[in-house]
């Protein structure tokens, strides 16, 4: 029994805007399940009162004036876009 079900894979994939074909659900459940199982060995470690490390450096807030800087042009920003019109990114319809 995999640590993650086919239904869960489907659900998580949808959250991540991915589509996994029915044929492949088993394979993904198996592979991701193996990794989750591996992660469960972390439960052997006592982490009571251990602070999580999210980042390496002791970063602090850096304040600066909120100034707009011009660094490129609208034409340049649009030149790699799959579709654009009238200086805007164009996408398929949002509402049916």
């Amino acid at each position: 029994m995999s640590k993650i079900s086919k239904e869960q894979i489907k659900h998580v994939a949808a959250l991540a805007r991915l589509e996994i074909s029915e044929d492949n659900l088993d394979k993904y459940a198996q592979e991701v399940g193996t990794l989750i199982e591996l992660a469960e060995e972390l439960n052997e470690v006592d982490t009571t009162n251990v602070k999580p490390t999210t980042h390496m450096l002791q970063t602090k807030n850096v304040m600066r004036e909120d100034e707009a800087k011009k660094w490129t042009t609208r034409e340049d920003i649009l030149k790699n876009a799959p579709d654009h019109k009238d200086g805007l990114f164009r996408v398929p319809s949002i509402l049916e």
């Binding site: 972390l42 470690v45 251990v50």
Partner: peptide, 14 residues
């Protein structure tokens, strides 16, 4: 269970 736990273990490794 997973993400936070991994970050705590990261602290111990560090």
């Amino acid at each position: 269970d997973y993400y936070k736990k991994a970050l705590q273990v990261r602290t111990l490794i560090k």
